[in-house]
Computed example of a mutant assay.
Amino acid sequence: MVEIDDTDARILTALQKRGRMSNADLSERVNLSPSACHRRVQRLEAEGVIAHYVALLDARKLDRPATVFVEITLAGQTEEALDAFEREVALIPDLLECHLMAGTADYLLKISARDTDDFARIHRRYLARLPGVAQMHSSFSLRTVFHTTALPV
């Protein structure tokens, strides 16, 4: 666990909203000198609090408006079965997220697709071939009501 003070929290909040801002803009926004701000950002990067900088893309503009959530239940939960599934699922190019779950399903996948035909292709080519799957349930998102990548700090 890394200690985060109020200044670090302001820096992290600002960077999560606008990761490409200059150090000068960031230091002004968090009320800190540019050199002190730069040192803090470097420390947060070195400690792994800031893991990556990314560009968030608009799925609709890239003709990938369909989001499909897939619940998967495996036939067994041995370490070998989980490892085999996780190795193979990581190879799906349309996969946005994969979560090992506690609850009714073993895994929850978030898939990006163009439409129902594209999801059928993803299902045939990748999902149906995943090892150890006993059940699979797919749900199409009708609309994203709220979405953020920002963690509360």
Rank of each mutant, 00 (worst) to 15 (best):
M1P: 15
M1H: 12
M1E: 15
M1G: 15
M1C: 12
V2I: 15
V2D: 14
D8I: 06
D8A: 06
A9M: 03
A9F: 02
L12V: 01
T13V: 14
Q16N: 10
Q16K: 05
K17R: 12
R18S: 13
G19V: 07
M21W: 06
M21D: 00
L26D: 06
S27F: 05
E28F: 02
R29S: 13
R29G: 02
R29C: 06
R29N: 07
N31L: 05
L32Q: 06
L32A: 02
L32P: 04
S33P: 02
S35L: 07
S35I: 14
S35K: 10
S35Y: 05
A36N: 14
C37G: 00
R39L: 11
R40F: 08
V41Q: 07
R43A: 08
L44A: 14
L44E: 14
L44I: 14
L44W: 12
E45P: 02
E45M: 11
A46V: 02
E47P: 07
V49H: 03
H52R: 10
Y53C: 07
Y53E: 05
Y53D: 03
V54M: 13
L56T: 12
L57P: 00
D58A: 02
L62H: 06
L62N: 10
D63W: 08
P65E: 01
P65T: 08
T67D: 06
T67P: 03
L74S: 10
L74I: 04
A75L: 09
Q77I: 07
Q77F: 05
T78H: 12
T78W: 08
T78F: 12
E79M: 11
E80S: 15
L82E: 08
A84W: 00
E86Q: 10
E88F: 04
I92E: 10
L95A: 00
L95G: 09
L95E: 08
L96N: 05
C98T: 10
H99A: 15
H99C: 08
M101W: 01
G103K: 14
T104N: 15
A105L: 13
D106I: 08
D106G: 01
D106P: 03
L108V: 11
K110Q: 11
S112Y: 11
S112L: 04
A113S: 13
A113I: 07
D115K: 11
T116I: 12
F119Q: 04
R124M: 13
L127A: 09
A128V: 01
R129E: 15
L130V: 10
L130Y: 02
L130T: 09
G132F: 03
V133M: 03
Q135I: 02
Q135A: 11
M136T: 08
H137G: 02
S138H: 05
F140S: 14
L142C: 10
L142M: 07
R143T: 05
R143I: 11
V145H: 09
H147Q: 15
T148R: 02
T149N: 14
T149A: 00
T149V: 11
L151C: 04
P152F: 07
V153W: 10
